[in-house]
Design a protein around this nucleic acid. Structure first.
Length: 854
RNA sequence: GCCCGGGUGGCGGAAUGGUAUACGCAACAGACUUAAAAUCUGUGACCUGAAAGGGUGUGUGGGUUCGAGUCCCACCCCGGGCACCA
């Protein structure tokens, strides 16, 4: 079974055991099992052309240690991997070379798979998923259809970055300083028809669910901040011109209503024209033009300077009937709240800045607790200048004023979110096609008569005076696959390359089966054939990664995303490890989809990731982020051939806490290689035979025996707590002690190998076999420590005098305090500090220290 | 600006309020060797002292405590996130 190499020849040992694991399918997880389950998930990689980055094996080693450890502890472990393979680089490569992105993607996957296997990760390769596989994205499309039917998907015109030179739409991250990242061409905002998912409908649930998950606090906070819940009130201000009706504003501080001295509406607000008096018309027009031509970037960049223009109109403050001017300013955003605010310059930084700049009145309505008169004041305090509410604490007044407004039907308590609906379409070729066909209203009605799976409200879109209706393909027609195209270049009109594929795009559609023929052919006979145009947008890369953790449960299932039994047995991942860069988007989107699937009864739990951990970033040797241009990139292939996969795995874990950002030290890995060689030498002689020092009858010294049991305990605890660096230190300490023992009990070395196996599986398998054990070390269980062996019968107590360390003394564990004080006082090093000084008090920390106060 | 996380030897880092610097890297000295590699042993914060010892030390300044790297307050620096969200 084992190799026969004399020395620790990892280049021979590692491939040997990798093929053993492959052939025996050692890591296959069974869907039917009486064992408790443990599901440990990695964020699956995008298979880029550059191959594996050193950051991948960092997180993947951590989860692999957990997976192997949990198997040893008797769990049925699900540890899968797959490929998040749709994405921009593959498409750009296709545009450049004209080859299908699928072929390039498959090449990259082959390389990634080779690299990952070379690291010895214990993935169940029978469960590999690939988001670009039609058998997979069939279910991505299916989930989209469920959202669509639930009314959670709609179509809207939204601004996107458009680069005329590249004839393409760019993602935010592809635009740098108002220019395309590739080529540096100017980009502009362009309104295009987009699919949008109504994630805001789940805002409240997405906040609530965070209470129940074991995630890093910082990630929870980031999601909370992103969702941005704020409680306040909507208040109606009457406009002086009764013909214009009311101006509705949102405020979180209705209690400051008496301090409102002006109003602001966003430049895009629908009432701007109506509110602008003739004398202000030119100024307002100029201001709107100026703000409209600012990009979003500039608008936030120029955040320092407030600007605005008076509309010439006035509103009436509903609480005191004061006349307040209405201004137009771009510090108020149309996309949040109602696009209009009441300005309270005394108690809001932005309003204060604006009021000072345009010389608007400032009225204080909250008194500072410390009596200070500095403005703006945003702290706690009691109401003032607010007849009927003076003296109240402001949260109290907030409630009362909101209630008073509600009673008069001119306001109500509301909750606003910063979270926006999710822009879900891309004008790309290389993504999941939307299983949607656009038809006329009449044809949609015909479909509605024979289909029961349409949304309550039809999704429609008006363009050039024609309204098109979105007709979903029936579930049975999935997957809708990408057609082969002549060119991967976008159409040039803002649509994807799919818009040029007339035969795929323009079709006759059978509305009940989803069957289609090109529109150039005669309309097939039958009552349900209608003229349709397919959706040319594709889904963003997030789509496939939103639910892959569910597909792993039952990846071959062709009738559901996974069987009910699999969903019930495996549930959701017990541990999810991946980079903090996904703290918001991926993790929020996946939670959203999961909650929708939960509401549909597809999955049995409401949260997908119960325990989350972010691995830190590994920096280059020079302490800065690894990048090709800096030439500080570490390639896993090179490290494996020079030091072996076991050393790489060990070193990645030994570098420091998993969550920390830490620099790579090329010398450091030699330390763990030396350690592995030391383990090898303790097990085997120079001839590669079992080390004669190992004997069945050998006995460890008491101290080393204790250390062994401590190590078994600590390694187990540290793995569970994901403190792999200290687990490795402890094993090093143990090995250093074993090395000094005159002889080693065979069982001790077997325990060491079982402890080491999750970290360095290849060498552990090899030595396990070479010591004459049959079967894999992984199936040998986890060593058990004896709690009785952890307690020593004597301890070393630190002696302090007045809190200063003055020596130590070794005493029996059950020593009493008076005895100890006596022993301590007799210590030669202690005596000088006690002479002529009466002992006032002693403090004894059991088993640790005695502090004598004189 | 706001919200997080973090500052410990030459370096990565360790330390339930209880011997600061475990473990590893680098360095130096020694053993083995003709030699080298490998391996093993030892030394390793600073000041003072011949030594024993004494004193000072975990970003800075205060505080709580018998005792603080650890808890509290203020500040400085580094990293991450958000950014006119009313």
């Amino acid at each position: 079974m084992a190799t026969h190499c004399k020395d620790y020849d990892f280049l021979q040992i590692e491939p040997h055991w990798q093929s053993f694991w492959d052939q025996t399918k050692a890591f296959r997880a069974e869907n039917q099992s009486s064992l408790p389950k443990y599901y440990v998930l990695d964020m699956f990689p995008y298979p880029s052309g550059a191959g594996l980055h050193i950051g991948h094996p960092e997180g993947y080693t951590a989860t692999d240690i957990l997976a192997r450890y949990k198997r040893a502890r008797g769990f049925n472990v699900l540890h899968p991997i797959g490929w998040d393979a749709f994405g921009l680089p593959a498409e750009q490569h296709a545009v450049k070379t004209g080859t299908h992105p699928a072929s390039n993607t498959q090449n990259n996957i082959t390389n990634f798979r080779r690299q990952i296997k070379a690291l010895g990760f214990s993935y169940d390769w029978d469960r590999e998923v690939d988001t670009t596989d039609p058998k997979y994205f069939r279910w991505t499309q299916w989930i989209f259809l469920q959202l669509f039917k639930k009314g959670l998907a709609y179509v809207d015109e939204r601004p996107v970055w458009w680069c005329p030179e590249l004839r393409t739409v760019l993602a935010n991250e592809e635009v740098v300083d108002g220019k395309s990242e590739v080529g540096g061409f100017p980009v502009e905002r362009k309104n295009l028809r987009q699919w949008v998912l109504r994630i805001t409908a789940y805002a409240e649930q997405l906040i609530d669910g965070l209470k129940d998950v074991d995630w890093p606090d910082s990630t929870k906070r980031m999601q909370e901040a992103w969702i941005g819940r704020s409680e306040g009130a909507e208040v109606l201000f009457k406009l002086e011109d009764p013909a214009l009706g009311d101006l509705k504003i949102f405020t979180t501080r209705p209690d400051t209503l008496f301090g409102c001295t002006y109003m602001v509406i966003a430049p895009e607000h629908p009432l701007v024209d109506a509110l602008t008096v003739p004398a202000q018309r030119e100024a307002v027009k100029a201001y709107r033009f100026k703000t409209a031509s600012k990009s979003d970037l500039e608008r936030t960049d120029l955040a320092k300077d407030k600007s605005g223009v008076f509309s010439g109109s006035y509103a009436v403050n509903p609480i005191n009937h004061e006349r307040v001017p209405v201004w137009i300013a771009d510090y108020v955003l149309m996309g949040y709240g109602t696009g209009a605010i009441m300005a309270v310059p005394a108690h809001d930084d932005r309003d204060h800045e604006f009021a000072v700049q345009y010389n608007l009145p400032i009225i204080r309505v909250i008194a500072a607790a410390d009596g200070s008169t500095e403005l703006p004041y945003t702290g706690d305090g009691k109401m003032m200048n607010s007849p009927g509410y003076n003296g109240l604490a402001w949260p109290e007044a907030k409630q009362q004023i909101t209630a008073a407004l509600a009673a008069r039907h001119i306001g109500k308590g509301t909750i606003n979110y910063k979270l926006r609906d999710w822009l879900f379409s891309r004008q790309r070729y290389w993504g999941e096609p939307f299983p949607i066909a656009w038809v006329s209203e009449a044809d949609y009605r015909r479909a509605a008569a024979v289909r029961t799976d349409l949304p309550a409200q039809p999704v429609k879109f008006a363009e050039n005076g024609v309204t098109q209706f979105a007709l979903p393909l029936p579930d049975a027609a999935l997957p809708l696959v990408l057609p082969d195209v002549q060119s991967y270049l976008p159409s040039g009109t803002g649509e994807s390359a799919l818009a040029n594929e007339t035969a795929w795009l323009e079709i006759w559609l059978e509305v009940t089966t989803g069957a289609s023929v090109p529109a150039t052919q005669p309309q097939p006979a039958g009552p349900n054939w209608v003229r349709a145009r397919r959706e040319t947008n594709t889904m963003p890369q997030w789509a496939g990664s939103c639910w892959y953790y569910l597909r792993y449960l039952d990846p071959q299932n062709s009738s559901a995303i996974a069987s009910e039994a699999a969903l019930k047995y495996w549930g959701v991942p017990d541990l999810y490890v991946g980079g903090a860069e996904h703290a918001v988007l991926h993790l929020l989107y996946a939670r959203f989809w999961h909650k929708v699937l939960f509401d549909l009864g597809v999955v049995p739990q409401s949260e997908p990731f119960t325990r989350l951990f972010h691995q830190g970033i590994i920096l280059g040797e020079d302490g800065v982020k690894m990048s090709k241009s800096r030439g500080n990139v570490v390639n896993p292939d090179d490290i494996i051939s020079a030091y072996g996969a076991d050393s790489l795995r060990m070193y990645l874990m030994f570098l420091g806490p998993l969550e920390a950002m830490k620099p790579w030290n090329p010398k450091g890995i030699e330390g763990v290689l030396r350690f592995l060689r030391k383990v090898w030498r303790e097990c085997l002689s120079e001839e590669g035979e079992p080390n004669p020092r190992i004997a069945a009858g050998a006995v460890l010294s008491a101290a080393t025996e204790k250390l062994l049991h401590e190590t078994i305990k600590k390694v187990g605890d540290d793995i569970e707590g994901m403190r792999f660096n200290t687990a490795i230190s402890q094993m090093m300490i143990l090995l250093n002690a074993l090395q000094k023992e005159p002889a080693l009990p065979r069982q001790t070395m077997l325990d060491v190998l079982r402890l080491l196996a999750p970290f360095a599986p290849h060498i552990s398998e090899e030595l396990w076999a070479r010591l004459g054990q049959t079967g894999s070390v992984m199936t040998a269980g986890w060593p058990v420590f004896d709690p009785n062996k952890l307690v020593a019968n004597s301890v070393t107590i630190v002696i302090q005098v007045n809190g200063k360390h003055r020596g130590d003394v070794t005493v029996p564990v059950d020593v009493t305090e008076p005895e100890l004080v006596k022993l301590a006082s007799a210590q030669p090093k202690v005596i000088p500090h006690l002479t002529d000084k009466p002992i006032k008090k002693t403090i004894y920390v059991k088993g640790r220290l005695i502090n004598i106060l004189v």
